[in-house]
Amino acid sequence: MTTLETTIAMTNTKLPRPQPAAPREYPVVDAIRAGEGFTPEIHEEILEQDSVVQISGFSLWYGQSRALFDISMPIPRGKVTALVGPSGCGKSTLLRSVNRLNDLVEGVRVQGDISLNGEPVYGPSVDVIDLRKRLGMVFQKPNPFPMSIFENVIYPLRIDGEKRRRVLEDACKNALQKAALLDEVADRLHESATALSGGQQQRLCIARAIVAEPEVLLLDEPCSALDPIATLRIEDLIREIAESYTVLIVTHNMQQATRVSEATAFMYLGRLVEFGPTEQIFQTPRLAETEDYVTGRFG
């Protein structure tokens, strides 16, 4: 052991140390740290587009601690929008606020509003169940239910009270087709879904999310638990699905954001920092924080 450790230590010393970056000014971060207000940089191209979800002045508290600070942004219709940012910056919280999954957490409080196709999400007369049926959600870890593949896919229809066998079967085939899973599972639709591989399970979850034809698809780091090949397949799938759905995706992976999304929002410490078309965010960002984050020097 000791010899091995020594070897490792010696190898390490021989590696070129990364050159310390030139100290840069971070005006936005400084403003946040100082508790001053700032205006997030939202590119005009985004504002010009038609939006399906409109977030306006939205803040969220978990008990005493505030997770989201006054976020206002549109989600462009028919596009893939990526939410990026360091861990704990509130990406997932924001995503879960859209379908009110945060309601399940004890002691959550919100301010401001989100609207879905013009209807308020947080209004007093909103039925949360109906709202969630209009949105599809895919989680970080594949979470197939312990039932057959068929039952998994049509779960949203079942809880909606759909009983016609024909309709269910067609919807299942359709959704699996769209999720590029049909060919692999066509002959074992009635076997347990938990026997599928991780990547297949995640595609199954995507099929489940789109079977009820939602207005927006919410993806919460859908590839973070998958191997690179499965990840690529899912990314292809997201691009295909984007032709017919609006997709909001949270990701940790910068390359993934450039590969799948058309718009990217950078979040930091619970605030929206910069939001624009993906190529602009990655190539010509307007803020130093964004540039350093997407190039891996910050955050």
């Binding site: 979470n143 239910f145 949203p156 809880i159």
Partner: peptide, 15 residues
């Protein structure tokens, strides 16, 4: 029963 299953179910719009 794993929380992820419950979350998934709520996410599908189940009561």
């Amino acid at each position: 029963v794993p929380g992820s299953s419950r979350q998934g179910s709520y996410g599908c719009g189940a009561s």
